[in-house]
Design a protein around this nucleic acid. Sequence first.
DNA 1: TTGTAGGCGTTATCAT
DNA 2: ATGATAACGCCTACAA
Lengths: 336, 336
Amino acid sequence: MVTRERPTLEAVARRAGVSRATVSRVVNGSTSVAASIREAVTRAVDELGYVPNQAARSLVTQRTESIALILPETANRVFSDDLFFPAIIRGVGVELEAADKQLVLMMAGSARSHGRVERYAVAGHVDGVMFASMHGADPLPGTLARLGIPVICSGRPIGRADVPYVDVDHFGGVCAAVRHLVAAGRRRIATIAGPQDMVAGIDRLAGYRATLEEAGLVQHVAIGDFTRESGIQAMRALLAGDPALDAVFVASDMMAHGALIALKDAGRRVPSDVAVIGFDDFEISRYSDPPLTTVRQPIADMGRTMARQLLGLVNGEQGLPDAVVLPTELVVRESA
Amino acid sequence: MVTRERPTLEAVARRAGVSRATVSRVVNGSTSVAASIREAVTRAVDELGYVPNQAARSLVTQRTESIALILPETANRVFSDDLFFPAIIRGVGVELEAADKQLVLMMAGSARSHGRVERYAVAGHVDGVMFASMHGADPLPGTLARLGIPVICSGRPIGRADVPYVDVDHFGGVCAAVRHLVAAGRRRIATIAGPQDMVAGIDRLAGYRATLEEAGLVQHVAIGDFTRESGIQAMRALLAGDPALDAVFVASDMMAHGALIALKDAGRRVPSDVAVIGFDDFEISRYSDPPLTTVRQPIADMGRTMARQLLGLVNGEQGLPDAVVLPTELVVRESA
DNA sequence: TTGTAGGCGTTATCAT
DNA sequence: ATGATAACGCCTACAA
């Protein structure tokens, strides 16, 4: 397969009988070009099928018109049947498309790929970088930001990384959920928490602890990793620890589905024996058995917001907020 | 935020006391460099934190080291709770990461974005292009291929687009599924087919028709669009048409879940009243009520295969197959 | 308004 | 083995 030679500015210029500079002006929409010449150039462009070479353009403009979305997870984790990352991607994608930027997706679950991501960003391959999740005190966002690369994170970074972020109100959402359980008369309320190296895991557990303390109830905690399988395991462990549990707040919908499965296996009815509340509000939760009461977080909105903030940074806008926190909301269905 | 000036080859060369050419050789791993000089250059690179400018490099090498994955769907369609596209992305991502290529994700559901994709690819922004799905007789793959851009499609293109593709054995899988129903004594077997502008929709319907014809049974067809909601609607329509249906082959797992919901609403038991078979074998189908009998297609494998084929094309390998068809397999659970 | 010319950071082709 | 030097294709002062 021979790559057909692509026409250059030079070729268009010759054909239109003008200079390269003029063609460049027309292509980039400069106003100071005579109508007749503009027309001739446009025709030449069409006839030759000219398309600007982005590499050459980037070399001089220092812009690539593309934005990286880093997923600090393994590919299997990103695209399991958990829809968190897909929703982030969707939100980001919509916003970038509107701004005519390209989305470069980078999965960086391993140390090796983490380094790759850094080199890639530092090489100036993208105009800005978004992190779709944060684990522990990852130094990469801070490193990039210090190099002058616009960066934004999804989820408040742990430690004092000086990087702007977008997050949701985990704590408030969980408090509403657990209070709902308390108000319904539940007294032995357990939780299946998320991974404790992520703010989403930490804050949701904190919300549970605070509310139970405020109600003067005993805490029962199991830790999962947001997957359904871990939800099953955790629910079994909780039941083994206290067979008389009458409610469980689960830090993600996928784990909540796991909990429903484990409860069914254990012969418990939901919600009469055990009330269950999740966190996410994926569409599928409307169809679980029973339909899941859950805390809705606007995931795609987070993606959109991240993208908007980042585009602002890239364009050098002033006065952008360092943090945006989106609201969460309890959605009551039948499981609690 | 001021972008800190990045060091260039020139700077490294000065620091190491050699020429740019030599630095370039070291950076690109040429063997013909004296060990002592190589060491000095490496040190200078580290001290300065030098990273090659990809735009400049692309300009001369004509390579970008990145590959586009086109999703000819709207963002909402790509990332609904259907896991087809995420699985494709996962497979592609794994393979490209191993090859150290970047994945550029492009959603192109609208005509406008379709044009954007074309311009982007033609601009030489990527070394090759993959299409994650095909609708109707989309001319874009053929157009790009004719321009000498390596292209590969997921799903056999409709019409005689002369473009290599990777697909699965829809027909064979469906035949196995429907024969399973026939063998179980079902006689009023309906189908919920997929969209008829896609090969996946067309071939699966063809498999149903062929098998029913071979068994001498009456065909009952409803068309959906692969979403759960359309599965619900279609199942209702089928029941209205023939309340005595005793089986249904559904062309996707999401639609099959919709069918299960509609059947439950209509007071039918699965599988005793109506047997249900889906197509996909998403993980979630193991947890539906009842667990879904379905045709497994290796979606992530398709992604990986596409990526491998494309990388072969990009590297100018000879003798690559024009088409790869992966096998499908009936997975029997409780719904049929 | 239009053209000339220099430079963006690399790689690659020559000599040396 | 190493160093000049010419592309690569484009944008943008600066001149005209």
